[in-house]
Design a binder for these strands. Structure first.
Lengths: 137, 137
DNA sequence: TATAAGTTTAGACGATGTCCAACAATAGAT
DNA sequence: ATCTATTGTTGGACATCGTCTAAACTTATA
């Protein structure tokens, strides 16, 4: 398990230090969308001497190397998402929590006919509430 | 001009103080997407005794009353947009500048078939560069 | 083992945003 | 007009977020 992680870091051209493995261990497998300081708080439980700067450095490194994606969706908050493949986001206005919506669930049309913009990526950002009716998603 | 502004504030249930009118005069008519502190800097030129707290209060009030929309799109920045009607956004990765894309320019399908979510509003957020080819938009 | 390259650290820093308690302006009643 | 209760404004203190730095520490390599 930790073995594989080290391999994955190496595969992404990242020297696997103890701190980086510890951060990866949490952030790559969480279903939450934690902020940098939330990652710090969590990971410090298992690696108490971890500094805030290192967490920020590590997260930025992971984003740069394609292990993580950075989201700027919630009110004033930057948040990290281990799902690197394209998907959309739904923000629950009641709780502020962020949910992933599969790419195939929606279809955006006419993107190609946009003049003047060279779009490299896009996503649909929705806001609302979890439906009272219907299954919990 | 200032008359109409006062009327518009009143129409939105906002007591038109000198500070609020000054802020409105700039922020409701700008094509930029200014941050709160940018608004502060700009408006202070015409109303020098304006405090930072008032600008934050006023912008939040305007958002709450529907005169402004708050965007959380750029890296770690909250920004204000006087276009309250629905539209999409394009973020220029080179400059960080934000561009409005008309609602009709894109079409999102299958939204209705989303289970479990009660979507109140949505938009498409695109990132990329202004096209080298093609007219500047 | 020596050396260079890479990593971590604490704390300083700037920018953002909120909060407060004192002060000022206003609306509404008389 | 004047009084009073309500509403706005102010500057400064405070918290949070993210970046930076210089020194210390690790790791890789020869």
């Amino acid at each position: 398990m930790k073995r594989d992680l080290i391999e994955e870091l190496r595969a992404h051209d990242i020297q696997p230090s103890a701190q980086r493995v510890a951060v990866a261990q949490y952030v790559l497998f969480t279903g939450e969308h934690p902020s940098a300081d939330q990652v710090w708080a969590k990971v410090r439980r298992s690696l108490p001497v971890l500094s805030r700067a290192t967490v920020y450095n590590t997260l930025n490194l992971f984003v740069q190397k394609g292990l993580l994606r950075q989201l700027v969706l919630a009110e004033g908050k930057v948040v990290f998402d281990p799902k690197v493949d394209a998907h959309h986001h739904f923000i629950d206005e009641a709780t502020g929590s962020i949910h992933d919506v599969p790419w195939e669930a929606l279809e955006v049309r006419k993107m190609a006919s946009l003049r003047g913009y060279d779009v490299r990526e896009y996503q649909v950002v929705m806001r609302g509430r979890k439906a009272a009716s219907g299954r919990k998603a």
